[in-house]
């Protein structure tokens, strides 16, 4: 059994993060010491690493919870996990698409502003942002 500091270190995260995952119900201490310290076994370390990797992969806490549930469900199969990963990819690709649109809009604004020495009243970027939306 190891302490919260050790499990955080082994999973490459912080004590605060471990506490947060516990508050969110993603992780539970395996036991408590006589003096009330949280203690964790090897399985908890594995679970915490899983949580960290999933978060690094872009999954939200709710999605990590779903992944953990699928992992424990006896009726689930790899296809269920793959589906969650594909749905995450769809979300990320959608975000990339939206960001590209925003980036292109910024390109237009930047291109419109040819005289950086002008006054704020003449600033085409502020003017464009102030204009009502078309359509």
């Amino acid at each position: 059994m190891i302490t919260i500091g050790k499990i955080a270190e082994q999973a490459g995260t912080t004590i605060d993060a471990v506490r947060y995952y516990e508050e969110e119900g993603l992780l539970l201490p395996t036991a408590k010491s006589g003096s009330g310290y949280r203690l964790y076994d090897a399985q908890a370390v594995r679970r915490l690493r899983f949580i960290r990797r999933a978060i690094d992969g872009g999954f939200t806490l709710a999605e990590v919870r779903a992944l953990l549930e699928v992992r424990q469900a006896t009726s689930a199969c790899c296809g269920d996990v793959r589906k969650l990963a594909i749905e995450k990819k769809l979300q990320i690709e959608g975000n990339i698409r939206a960001l590209k649109v925003q980036s292109a809009q910024l390109d237009e604004l930047i291109a419109d502003c040819t005289d950086a020495s002008g006054t704020l009243d003449e600033c085409p970027i502020l003017d464009a942002l102030d204009r009502p939306r078309q359509g």
Partner: peptide
């Protein structure tokens, strides 16, 4: 198959399958 039509699926706003 969403993996073969990913761009199209994203353009339609598909997030779940």
């Amino acid at each position: 198959n969403v993996l073969e039509e990913l761009d199209y699926a994203v353009s339609l706003g598909i997030l779940t399958l």
